[in-house]
């Protein structure tokens, strides 16, 4: 394997890191993690895929970013990335946020793989709290950064107790929480982190993605991987796996509604919109949360690929 020569001249790295990455004779492992760490984490990923929705503990490594800033997602990215991969990193749908850009830069530096903002071209997508609007295909892998992997943490603080509940498929407490929500507010008020049943067996936290994205987890073509670096848990939704949001017969699950609003930049009515408030004028604007999707649809951009946009059917 060709030793990598990271680019010189970064001033943000601490001395130790710079020496390791940039000094003469720098020999950092390809993709940063040492081979035994990669092997261990890959084994955990295989187990997670074999038991859809089940949280598999793993030895989370120290990364050059702080815990809580996507160390879980980053470790999976580094473990799965190969020389031929094309990487995309998004943060709440945006390719250009500081965190996404820095993670992308870091992976490029330690592996030299190509990066992109185009969902269609990426083979590996690391994401924080969104699923791209364009449908993913078989072979693409979506890696979620997860803050709290335990969906039952909301109703039960004890880890021992939540593990027992998972083992016995005892999810009545979660159902009770939703019932109480309906009694109090007339509807289920859970916005992001909406609990889902995976493969009819495990209750899973889909990470704080909006409800809008949940239908895309269900029987998808691609593999979804979830990793919480601080909490040291990996779980997965393999392709074609049933993922059902918890819902009552008379209070069905529904995604966010935008009441006919459309994106101010691309005019889309079938994508998840962010509300922007102009500080000076106080004006409210709605724009696509997925920036690369929005960019593709703007006038002058190459036409979006055929097949419709996700969310049309819903």
């Amino acid at each position: 394997m060709k030793p990598i020569r990271p680019r010189r001249g970064s001033t943000l790295l601490p001395d130790g890191w710079r020496r390791a990455l940039e000094g003469e004779g720098a020999r950092y492992s390809w993709a940063f993690l040492d081979e035994s760490a990669k092997r261990e984490i890959r084994r955990r990923v295989l187990k997670a895929i074999a038991i859809p929705g089940c949280q598999v503990p793993f030895g989370s490594r120290e990364m050059p970013i702080a815990r809580g800033w996507g160390t879980g997602g980053l470790q999976l990215t580094l473990v799965l990335v190969g020389p031929g991969d094309v990487l995309k990193v998004i943060d709440q749908g945006s390719d250009d946020s500081v965190n996404a850009v820095n993670i992308k830069k870091f992976v490029r530096r330690v592996t030299g793989v190509a990066t992109t903002t185009d969902t269609r071209q990426a083979t590996l997508i690391q994401t924080r709290h969104r699923i791209p609007e364009e449908p993913l295909e078989a072979g693409q892998v979506l890696i979620f950064q997860v803050p709290i992997p335990e969906p039952l943490r909301l109703v039960e603080p004890s880890e021992r107790e939540t593990r027992r509940m998972h083992a016995e498929a005892d999810y009545s407490r979660m159902w009770l929480y939703l019932y109480e929500d309906i009694v109090r507010y007339g509807e289920i008020t859970v916005g992001a982190r909406y609990p889902v049943m995976v493969n009819g067996r495990y209750l899973m936290d889909p990470s704080p993605i909006p409800r809008w994205d949940l239908p895309r987890l269900d029987r998808a073509e691609n593999l979804f991987l979830f990793c919480a670096g601080r909490e040291k848990r990996i779980y997965a939704v393999p392709p074609h796996t049933a993922v059902e949001p918890l819902s009552f017969e008379d209070f069905a699950f529904r995604v966010e509604r935008f009441a006919g609003r459309r994106c101010r930049r691309c005019g889309s009515e079938a994508s998840f919109l962010d509300e922007m408030i102009d500080d000076a004028t106080g004006l409210r604007r709605w724009v696509c949360s997925d920036t690369s999707f929005c960019e593709k649809r703007r006038p002058g951009a190459p036409p979006p690929p055929a097949g419709g946009t996700p969310g049309d059917a819903r």
Partner: peptide, 8 residues
């Protein structure tokens, strides 16, 4: 709910 009732 534990007995499988799913109609509020």
């Amino acid at each position: 709910l534990l007995a499988g009732w799913r109609h509020v």
